[in-house]
Computed example of a mutant assay.
Amino acid sequence: MAKKIVTDLELKGKKVLMRVDFNVPLKDGKITNDNRITAALPTIQYVLDQGASVIAFSHLGRVKTEEDKAGKSMAPVAARLTELLGKEVKFVPETRGADLEAAVSEIKPGEIMMFENTRFEDIDGKKESKNDPELGKYWASLGDVFVNDAFGTAHRAHASNVGIASNIEESAAGFLMEKEIKFIGGAVDAPERPLVAILGGAKVSDKIAVIENLIAKADKIIVGGGMMFTFLKAKGLSIGKSLCEEDKLDLAKELMEKAGDKLILPIDTVAAKAFAADAEHRTVAVADMAEDEMGLDIGAASIELFTKALEGSKTVVWNGPMGVFEMPAFAKGTIGVCEAIANLDGATTIIGGGDSATAAIDLGFADKFTHISTGGGASLEYLEGKLLPGVESISEC
């Protein structure tokens, strides 16, 4: 069923509870990357422009003990949001209680406030993360309607998403959540073909369900990154000291048998004797690795193979880098894949969050993709074909 979008709601004069994903990196109290904040601005600005007030809230990191709270306050985020919006964002350093309730009662149309890290409620019994019924009901009581724009937590049933949605009359997706549903959900359920999936990263175990789901849905599945070596060893090749999940070899064989010609593996690798940025390295065919070498990237021939496999594709989903892209010597495979996708003509190109999103942004390719997901775990589960609690709990049209 179609989900309500923020534009479907009557907002004038309403107090809008808005779950955002402001789980941003902090160093010495300073935000080092505000992409998640800027991504939520269109929804926030729309709600304010409609004559409503915004009560924004998010988690920030993992909080299990009182000691974990240090450096996890949302105060720096509220300050940055004030700068980006050009208007004051009142910050209330509480997750419940009289001060929070007073601030909510005083907020006027066109104003915005933010309350404290929702995970502070996890210190005493994981009330947020375990979707405590009373907490969800309490937070829901603070507003008139609920807008969920936090796709990054959509794969979890928390008090701040499912709990609120279950206890409020009307809920809707924000513009960012809408994009995620449209692009990632659309790529899996109703893609324009050919659909090509590119999967990388370290472990096969992280992508098993994705591969199994995409075998039936994708026209091609390209595999790179550290996970490629488990497949290569399952084919009987020597992989030296490369990363390998020995307990997943039989599964890798099964996946290759199911996928047949759909599954495309690298034919060369950039090998080194040490996992180090300055390690001596060489490009070698995957069948010719020495016993004391490890593969840290795909080679030029594999980049060419993957580029050719992408030709003519109309939908591309990419999740996971092709090598240790943080080290310049082993970033060429990821750069090559970025360039190949960026140069596709007329294709819908989607990055499923996580390290591949970081790589594309860091390498300067962010504006070359149709959509870059803000949720690593959520996008993976969406690609697996799972229902996401945070999406399912949004009101239907």
Rank of each mutant, 00 (worst) to 15 (best):
N161H: 11
N148E: 08
N161L: 13
Y138M: 10
E169H: 13
S160Q: 04
T153F: 01
E134K: 12
K130M: 08
F175L: 15
A172N: 12
S141A: 14
S141T: 00
G163W: 00
F175E: 10
S160I: 02
G152D: 01
N161S: 14
D149P: 07
E178C: 10
E180L: 10
S166L: 14
F146L: 06
W139Q: 11
S171L: 01
P133C: 14
G143D: 03
G136T: 08
K137H: 08
K137V: 04
D132Y: 03
L176W: 14
A173T: 02
A159S: 15
A140K: 05
G136P: 07
L135W: 10
F146I: 04
I164L: 12
E178M: 14
L176Y: 08
S166F: 05
L135V: 13
L135I: 14
Y138E: 11
V162I: 11
A173L: 12
G163Q: 05
E134S: 14
D132L: 04
V162P: 06
S160T: 10
E169L: 09
W139V: 14
T153V: 15
K130Y: 05
H155I: 09
D149R: 07
A140W: 02
A154N: 04
L135T: 05
W139H: 12
A173G: 06
S141D: 07
E169T: 15
N148R: 10
A150D: 04
F151T: 01
A140D: 06
F146Q: 01
L142S: 09
N167F: 00
E180D: 13
S166H: 14
A140F: 01
D144N: 14
W139R: 11
E170W: 09
P133H: 15
A165H: 00
G163R: 03
Y138W: 13
E178S: 15
N167L: 06
G152H: 01
D144Q: 11
I181F: 07
A165N: 00
